[in-house]
Design a binder for these strands. Structure first.
Lengths: 212, 212
DNA sequence: ATAATGTTTAACAATATTGTTAGCGCGAAA
DNA sequence: TTTCGCGCTAACAATATTGTTAAACATTAT
């Protein structure tokens, strides 16, 4: 993976320490809830350094959200880098990788949806690179579905709805975990086993949806 | 429905005007992003009135979130108030009503998940009434599934996973609309037709999941 | 060694945001 | 009519939060 999360917190430059602390704070509290003083304190530097390196809270936030957009773009592109693979195998692989990614970045969907919702004006720039990739992905997928359907291997379904189904089934349970887990008898208490169970469940659900 | 949203904004008491404005502001911006001055201004009253009636921002927020919890409880209870109805019909009805509710309250899931995530300490009290209803709901559903399966009418699936599937498929597309719609070619531009399309799609998806 | 450049610190400034208080006006009760 | 309580207003207060600056300090180049 290209973008990594900092964990060692030692022998880093001041700029890197600020970025690492800012990522944690922004992901946890959002733009509005994040405090620049808290970021500086967590980074172990004076809060003036934050302004020295990034001038404003906005600039710092932009750096963080751009790195997150990069992660999402990588995942989007990675989910179709299996040329020539049969549709069912491709979807199975994509669901597995997607859920692994979400389990490794549990706060990311909430963060992105939230910040886009609360500041739609600022987002267009960073979302443009995602927008450029989406249409070809959808077209490629629809072509492969239609091809499968022509050969009687699967049902002819709408690619957009299928993608919506997959990302909904993959993301939402992790996103709603703090609210849903207590209501559902603590099914997510053991996160690793829940992750694997959800992979199987979602693959099954989508395969049944595709059956002729 | 018990809890309603204020729209007329005339001939209301000052307290009601503040509550109506606070609901809009909190739902749109969240607790951290909401400004009490903005609430007072939107309500057309002095911001001192806000403190006169509710003392603190926290108290006002609690009033709003408690009303939202009430709405969610009503929906949860409403989804099983069809005693004696066959499983498939019950699920079909529940999905339709659930999606109608979400379409009418598009910001609610994001709001709840967000506030619970960012202040887990404050939530337990209000969530307790939800927690008390969930187990019986799940047990009832599991019993009906098992009964259906015994008679060969459906597959034996886990009720918790089924509920997770349904709410994920129902909620997530509306929740992620600001981010997803541009990426998916504006499929949600006409919200009413998208709402109906999603109902059909999700009912079909779940029915196929239940098929023996 | 000295200058130049970049980094850090501590204190300050400016504004935003929430919360408080003294008093005014008006309607109801005495 | 007077008094009392309630809703209300305006100004103030306290703190939080972001942003700035001058000078100290460090590092490197000359």
């Amino acid at each position: 993976m290209e973008t990594t999360t900092i964990t060692d917190t030692q022998n880093l430059t001041t700029e890197e320490k600020i970025l690492a602390a800012a990522e944690k704070e922004f992901m946890l509290k959002g733009y509005d809830g994040a405090r620049t003083t808290a970021i500086a304190e967590a980074a172990g530097v004076t809060h003036a350094m934050l302004h020295y390196y990034f001038r404003t809270k906005d600039n710092l936030f932009d750096r963080i959200i751009e790195s997150k957009i990069d992660m999402i773009r990588d995942i989007m592109l990675g989910s179709l880098d299996a040329p020539g693979m049969p549709l069912f195998d491709k979807i199975t692989l994509a669901i597995g990788r997607h859920i692994d990614f979400i389990a490794a970045n549990p706060g990311l969907p909430k963060f992105m949806i939230n910040e886009i919702f609360s500041r739609p004006d600022r987002m267009p720039k960073v979302l443009d690179q995602l927008r450029s990739h989406a249409p070809v992905m959808l077209e490629t997928l629809q072509d492969q579905i239609d091809d499968c359907a022509r050969r009687g291997l699967c049902r002819k379904v709408d690619a957009v709805m299928l993608i919506l189904d997959i990302v909904s089934l993959n993301i939402f349970p992790f996103m709603a975990a703090p609210m849903a887990n207590p209501l559902l008898g603590g099914i997510m208490d053991d996160m690793t086993s829940f992750t694997e169970a959800r992979k199987k469940e979602n693959i099954e659900t989508i395969m049944r949806k595709l059956q002729p």
